[in-house]
């Protein structure tokens, strides 16, 4: 089964990918073809994914940078003060 992938490291999983994986898990559960223990694993993974997504959403401050032309003429991002 494709569902039993090795445990992914969630910390730098992209939001979109996490959402996709979540939906895949739901579809798999809906298909109702997994054993109970597989379902439990999927559920556990799903709960972790939602926590990961929520953590991303919980980031309070948006990171805003402004590109500034450096001495060598290239544009470099610099933190931008709140407007």
């Amino acid at each position: 089964m494709t569902q039993t992938k090795k445990k992914p490291d969630l910390s730098d999983l992209e939001f979109e990918k996490a959402l996709q994986r979540l939906e895949e898990i739901v579809r798999t559960l809906e298909a109702n073809k997994t054993t109970l223990s597989e379902s439990l694993q999927l559920f556990e993974e799903g709960v972790k994914l939602t926590a990961h997504c929520n953590a991303l959403l919980d980031k309070a401050e948006q990171q805003v940078s402004m590109l500034v032309k450096g001495e060598d003429g290239t544009m470099k991002p610099a933190p931008m003060l709140p407007l």
Binding site: L29, L36, G46, T50, C53
Partner: peptide, 27 residues
């Protein structure tokens, strides 16, 4: 919208729990 996403995540979570419950109750 983060709020909408959060809602969506919650829905997915609930759906997962329901599906799991369905399987365990069948068992």
């Amino acid at each position: 919208d983060s709020a909408a996403l959060r809602q969506r995540l919650e829905n997915v979570n609930r759906l997962m729990a329901d599906l799991l419950l369905r399987q365990t109750s069948a068992g």
